[in-house]
């Protein structure tokens, strides 16, 4: 049963301390959302988890085995098990949709191209892009690109899926298509850690919600606990502002 334990994790970015000791645990099949004001360290936490930023202190333990972020092999092993979708989609601009989804399984994990491409087409059909497999990223709308990015992440068959404000850069009318895909994944039991500003969506989809501020976890609870009965003043303040707005 895969679990992801984050213990007193700290990280800094360009001399600024962004994470001051974050502790939380993600269990299998669980959807956990991170909310909080901008600059609270939510996205940084995801970057640290996938090894794009080396933590200053603390531990990340996957299935009881701590990840050594200073060690290439350890980080590679971690990345075999997780996938991340970025706010700016980050699709490979030189590859068409199908290549974007298939490149890692084929070229990095050395799986047979035929098999991978069949899977990739199924995934692309699932995110509603079965007719766009030969298109290039710059020919697609933001919402379509983001759905390709999700398909690319799913093609890695991740045990943990991290979503970093995946609707923040999208035009409002494109958001719902992307969120529908995530809803489907949640129903299938995908383990997800989601950073999002779509509060209604967070409330609907999450098993647990973590409220972060200033690089620390302020409060953790079910959506009802966090949104309706926040215990901490900062949570109350934040939730109050959102609900009024």
């Amino acid at each position: 049963m895969p679990t992801l334990d984050i213990d007193n994790l700290g990280a800094s970015y360009g001399g600024n301390t962004v994470l001051r000791g974050v502790t939380m645990a993600l269990r299998t099949g669980e959807v956990m959302s991170l909310i909080g004001p901008s600059g609270s360290g939510k996205s940084t936490l995801l970057r640290v988890l996938v090894g794009l930023l080396v933590p200053d202190h603390g531990r990340v333990v996957v299935d009881g085995a701590p990840v050594n972020y200073a060690n290439k092999q350890s980080v590679r092993a971690l990345r075999e098990r997780c996938a991340i979708v970025f706010q700016q989609y980050n699709l490979f601009q030189n590859m068409n949709v199908l290549e974007n989804v298939a490149v890692t399984p084929v070229r990095i994990r050395k799986r047979p191209r035929r098999e991978v491409e069949a899977e990739a087409m199924a995934l692309l059909a699932r995110v509603g892009l079965g007719d766009k497999i030969r298109s290039y990223p710059d020919e697609l709308s933001g919402g379509q690109q983001q759905r390709v990015a999700i398909a690319r992440a799913l093609a890695l068959k991740p045990e943990f899926l991290f979503l970093d404000e995946i609707t923040a850069a999208l035009d409002p009318e494109l958001v719902s298509d992307v969120l529908d895909v995530i809803r489907g994944l949640a129903n299938d039991g995908m383990t997800m850690l989601i950073v999002s500003h779509e509060m209604a969506f967070v409330r609907e989809i999450s098993d647990r919600v973590v409220f972060m501020a200033d690089g620390l976890v302020v409060e953790t609870g079910t959506p009802t606990e966090i949104f309706d009965h926040p215990q901490m003043p900062r949570t109350r303040d934040f939730v109050g502002k959102i609900l009024r707005h």
Partner: peptide, 23 residues
């Protein structure tokens, strides 16, 4: 080449050489 292309390649476990050659 946008820095996020390097990020994407890194989280997909591309080596430095694979990142250069493929992306």
């Amino acid at each position: 080449v946008h820095p996020n292309q390097w990020d994407s390649a890194a989280v997909c476990n591309f080596t430095a050489w694979q990142t250069l050659r493929l992306v």
